[in-house]
Design a protein around this nucleic acid. Structure first.
Length: 173
DNA sequence: GCCAACGTTGGC
DNA sequence: GCCAACGTTGGC
């Protein structure tokens, strides 16, 4: 069963236009366990950290899943387009790079700590759907994005929510 | 730039 | 295992 996600990126760092240009990219730099667990997928990865009981029960990504590309720390913040997951459970190469802020001293090639997904560009919306507008939609009120204090950068989305946002993107602002 | 809310770290 | 202190996220 195809699942749906929302993934946040600051457009100053990596935007929907960057993903369009690249075609595919590794979703690197995520340093949150819950988000990591989603991106690890269901496949057993040799040397990978064990997921907790709770994490085992949580949804998990698979190739073919689609996601909403969300621009955070942007003006306006909002959903900018769609991508597709092409691989899950890829060791995040940035954890091995001492020069980066997301370097992970505990990680080794045999036992990586952080994992990412590989994602493909699907489409850029004709307009960014602003957070304000998402908030004003009754049918979207349960989105993780809108929950108080929620700041997960990779989060599950219902099919109905995904489709509603795709539809809203076609509306003239 | 501010700051509320959250996640992580580390001393005990 | 608790929890205070600290760091980060992300909207405003």
């Amino acid at each position: 069963m195809k699942q749906y996600w929302l993934m946040k990126s600051e457009p100053d760092v990596y935007s929907i236009d960057d993903m369009k240009r690249d075609g595919k990219t590794l979703w690197t730099g995520v340093r949150n366990y819950q988000a990591r667990n989603y991106m690890m997928g269901d496949v057993a990865i040799p040397g990978a950290p064990k997921k907790t009981e709770a994490a085992m029960k949580a949804p998990t990504m698979a190739p073919g899943d689609e996601f909403l590309f969300y621009h955070s720390n942007a003006e306006p913040p909002g959903v900018a387009g769609i991508g597709r997951i092409s691989k899950v459970g890829v060791p995040d190469p940035e954890q091995f790079n001492k020069k980066l802020e997301v370097f992970e001293p505990k990680a080794t090639k045999e036992k990586p700590v952080w994992f990412c997904s590989e994602v493909e560009f699907v489409k850029k919306f004709d307009r960014v759907i602003p957070l304000d507008e998402i908030r004003s939609e009754k049918s979207l009120a349960k989105m993780v994005l809108l929950q108080k204090g929620s700041r997960l950068s990779v989060q599950p989305v219902l099919k109905a929510e995904f489709e509603r946002l795709a539809k809203l993107s076609q509306k003239k602002p």
